[in-house]
Design a protein around this nucleic acid. Structure first.
Length: 884
DNA sequence: TTTGTCACG
DNA sequence: ACGTACGTGACAAAG
């Protein structure tokens, strides 16, 4: 038996729009209604397993009903633009799923559904209607039922004749009589004034239809009611007519036209990528290993597998010239441990796949890879360089384009996109994801032979395809300088830094470890002693029970799952019980031990060094990040932790660690961007900026600034950089919100240019949908016009902060590129090792110290031209700790 | 895998 | 009345 689902498209779209927050993707396209609609479709397809389906939409503004009653739907507000722009997307989803949809001038979706329900329902076809509108109950009969959305979108309640009878005591066809009597405010159907659902039902239980009710008006109970019915009899009859779904729309559709064609996996994936329906994508991938793979996208890309020098010789013309792409398959993207497995090269037509051994030994391919005049497009230049250097001793040159860096520059909120994602969002979607190809989690395996060759050949092919597409998009977004003069050169520098690594003083590490362990054990014992019970101090749950249930300390803050035991809470409780201070100390020492002693120890390689990985495509602001291990968060604020820095030492005898950090770079950037005269003056005169702010904000002279005032001013300065709010500052300083607001007001009065800048940047963001840094780096803020206060405020603060944080990131990156050049030109032996956002760390032979100090300071201070000077502090020591 | 916590700029 | 400081990554516990 066939099963036909008729969906009231407008009703579901509205329902989804108002049920979900106003979501949007990175390019600012609203997607909440599409998302809800899609959820509903998936649910229906899965639960009902229909053979046929049709989604009906309203067409145009007026329908035949307006001829009878001009005010029909007159009170209805115009469809919000945020919703109407989503209808085309909903139709794209339907296309991708192979679901027919239909609309017809002069008729509403209801009428189309009604007509089809009447004509299609028979003993061989069951019909099910999906809507959020109760009116459609009138279409229910033995062969037709209605799935009415309950709360949300995917929860539905099934109404058949019996369910309607039970709920209203009415036959389905009497629903129109009900509406005729009571009217419908949302459609502006009048009904009989003063008659609501209760009275209407009472009347219909006496007489079965509007016609009967008005005919027997004299027999109705209650004088007032009789009068009202008599007075509004015409209106009631008209209302019934308006409420009646027209079931004789002339349609040229038959059941065959409504057959489900099955989804087009490629289209679905592409569309979901574009809409950023990530949860749905993974759901499809999960429940449809077969499902998605079957319909997949996958294009077969031809390739040649080349095993010997002789075979490769035949391709000398291929390598002679022209832009090509390559993809290096590696065992891991670790800068030192990663090994080359095979290489695929593409010129867009021909794909060659070469095993690692051939790459290591064949001169033609080596020459091509190392020639600066042979342009090469890659995905992830940094890894390609590291691995080819480590595995084949090849210094790759001529890297002309990186599709990963390009995708990141175009939208940095899409952190480290996979090649498959980029192909899905900016190409033809023909590349299956690595998870699909290699398997996920425990099932992951390394590919071999043909399978591997096929996959990396198509990767090389798609990298080649993407090159021009992304280049054009970069040009359009004015991101070319950033790409070619900053990120691409930087990727080579980062690759070198990662491969160099930082040397570790293992004996000092062990010494600190023993010390911390002893301290931890003792604190643990004391805490258990005081608590009178042995428990896991590291478990927030157990700790909460001890502190708040057993010891009865006051609960200051709660988390989703229970009591908060965070440091700011514990600090407030410290005076009340001696155990609290010990717990705080235990936490501190425990953190040092597990993250920095044990954690770092695990990362020491066979060369006695730690090789962090710098992520160049992760942060939304343009900063770098550091992983495995993170060397950008080595302790410094507390002396006890700061000593961890003693383990980082130069790699050679009689060399030194040199650290150079920008002083107040973000506030200087703010002075530049805001053009605030007062702030600029402070920096030109090289004032202590926090004291200076304290003087202005508290209205005192230099000698009168107390440490507390300076501390508070510092917090205000931080707040300004973060995109200030009274609430945020009050939490940062632990003062009432009112006082915090007063600080901010005084700050803005002192630095009016800053206030103007903040207003300007937020206005700009609302207009353009994105903000930019000094060098033009972009960040999209799709929620900047959100209706939800929290979301909007967050976007506004981000609009204020990103140009500042991002410009600072631009500046230090630029300094790194220049420094690398200068050091090479001067033939320095010194090496850049680490970058920590506003700081660069080098190892330097003793004889180069004077020159390096000068070179580093000069280059960093002059990396870009600002309206205020940049200031760099340089320090030298025998380890990172000493270079302070 | 998610949550709470805490290390950094 | 609303309700969060900006940007990261790692670890331990618990689901």
């Amino acid at each position: 038996m066939d099963k036909l689902i008729l969906v009231d498209g407008n009703s579901i779209a509205y329902r989804a729009f108002y049920a979900l927050p106003l979501l949007s993707n990175a390019s600012g396209v609203y997607t909440n209604s599409v998302y809800g609609f899609t959820m509903m479709l998936l649910k229906i397809l899965e639960d009902e397993q229909p053979t046929h389906m049709l989604v009906a939409f309203d067409a145009g503004k007026t329908t035949f009903r307006h001829k009878d009653f001009q005010e029909y739907k007159g009170t209805r507000q115009k469809t919000p633009a945020e919703l109407s722009e989503q209808f085309p997307l909903i139709k794209q989803v339907l296309d991708a799923f192979g679901i027919p949809y239909f609309e017809k001038e002069d008729y509403e979706a209801d009428d189309i559904i009604g007509t089809l329900a009447r004509t299609c329902a028979c003993k061989d076809v069951s019909v099910h209607i999906v809507s959020g509108d109760k009116d459609l109950l009138q279409l229910v009969n033995e062969d037709v039922d209605l799935l009415l959305t309950r709360k949300g979108i995917t929860e539905m309640e099934r109404y058949d004749s019996r369910a309607i009878e039970k709920k209203y005591g009415l036959k389905p066809r009497q629903i129109i009589d009900l509406k005729g009597l009571m009217g419908d405010a949302s459609d502006n159907i009048p009904g009989i004034p003063g008659v609501g659902e209760k009275t209407a039902l009472k009347l219909l239980h006496l007489f079965p239809s509007v016609e009967e009710v008005v005919a027997h008006a004299e027999e109705l109970p209650g004088k007032k009611l009789r009068e009202k019915v008599k007075q509004h009899r015409e209106q009631a009859l008209l209302s019934k007519k308006l409420a009646t779904i027209y079931t004789e729309v002339p349609l040229s559709l038959n059941l065959d036209d409504l057959a489900l064609k099955g989804r087009d996996g490629k289209k679905v994936v592409q569309l979901f990528e574009r809409l950023e329906f990530n949860s749905l994508l993974s759901r499809l991938a999960k429940d449809g290993e077969s499902n998605l793979a079957q319909h997949s996208v996958e294009r077969t890309i031809p390739y040649q597998y080349i095993e010997t020098d002789e075979e490769l010789d035949a391709w000398s013309r291929f390598f002679a010239d022209g832009e090509k792409s390559f993809f290096a398959e590696v065992t891991s993207d670790h800068p030192v441990r990663g090994k080359l497995i095979a290489l695929a090269v593409s010129d867009g037509k021909t794909q060659l796949v070469l095993p690692a051994e051939l790459v290591r030994e064949n001169n033609m391919i080596r020459d091509w890879l190392t020639r600066a005049d042979q342009p090469k497009t890659v995905y992830d230049a940094k890894t390609a360089q590291s691995v080819l250097l480590g595995s084949a001793n090849l210094q790759v040159e001529g890297l002309s384009f990186d599709v990963l860096l390009a995708a990141y520059l175009l939208d940095p909120s899409d952190s480290h996109p996979s090649l498959s994602r980029i192909v899905n969002s900016r190409g033809d979607g023909g590349l299956p994801s690595d998870d699909e190809v290699y398997g996920k989690g425990a099932k992951r395996r390394q590919l071999e032979g043909e399978e591997l060759a096929k996959h990396i050949a198509r990767k090389a092919y798609y990298i080649h395809q993407l090159g021009p597409v992304l280049q054009e998009q970069l040009a359009e977004a004015r991101l070319e300088q950033l790409m070619y003069n900053l990120e691409l050169p930087l990727s080579s520098i980062l690759s070198k830094m990662e491969r160099r690594g930082v040397s570790v003083d293992k004996s000092r590490l062990n010494e600190l470890g023993r010390e911390l362990k002893a301290s931890m054990d003792q604190l643990e014992e004391e805490i258990h002693e005081i608590a009178g019970v042995v428990f896991n101090i590291n478990s927030p749950k157990q700790l909460g029970e001890i502190l708040f249930d057993k010891l009865g300390l006051p609960v200051i803050k709660k988390t989703k799952t229970g009591y908060s035991t965070s440091a700011d809470v514990l600090e407030k409780l410290a005076p009340q019980h001696e155990i609290v201070e010990k717990i705080l100390h235990y936490r501190q020492v425990g953190k040092l031990y597990s993250t920095y002693i044990e954690g770092l120890r695990k990362e020491i390689g066979s060369d006695g060094k730690i090789h962090t990985q710098f992520q160049q495509t992760v942060t939304a602001t343009g900063r770098l990040s550091s992983t495995e291990p993170n060397l950008q968060n080595i302790p410094i604020r507390m002396e006890e932790g700061r000593r961890i820095r003693q383990i980082f030492i130069p790699s050679q005898e009689s060399w030194y660690m040199l650290s150079a950090d920008y002083s107040q770079i973000e506030l200087r950037v703010l002075a530049h961007l805001s053009r605030d005269k007062s702030l600029q003056k402070a920096f030109r005169e090289d004032k202590d900026i926090h004291s200076h702010t304290a003087m202005d904000v508290f209205g005192v002279c230099e000698e009168e600034v107390t440490p507390l005032m300076r501390r508070q001013a510092k917090a205000v300065n931080f707040g300004i950089v973060y995109g200030i709010s009274g609430y945020g500052l009050s939490r940062g300083l632990d003062i009432p919100q009112k006082e915090a607001k007063a600080f901010i007001d005084r700050y803005f009065a002192t630095y009016p240019g800053v206030k103007e800048y903040m207003d300007r940047i937020v206005r700009q963001a609302k207009k353009d949908g994105y903000v930019t840094t000094m060098l033009g780096r972009r960040r999209y803020l799709p929620k900047i016009n959100a209706r939800n206060y929290g979301e909007r405020s967050f976007a506004e603060r981000t609009a204020m902060n990103t140009p500042i944080q991002g410009t600072a990131a631009d500046i230090i990156k630029h300094a790194m590129v220049k420094l690398d050049q200068h050091m090479a030109e001067k033939g320095m032996k010194s090496r850049m090792l680490l970058q920590v956002h506003d700081e660069l760390i080098f190892e330097v032979p003793e004889e180069e110290l004077p020159e390096m100090k000068e070179l580093v300071r000069n280059t960093m201070e002059n990396a870009v031209e600002l309206s205020v000077p940049l200031k760099v502090d340089v320090n030298v020591g025998s380890n990172w700790y000493e270079a302070k």
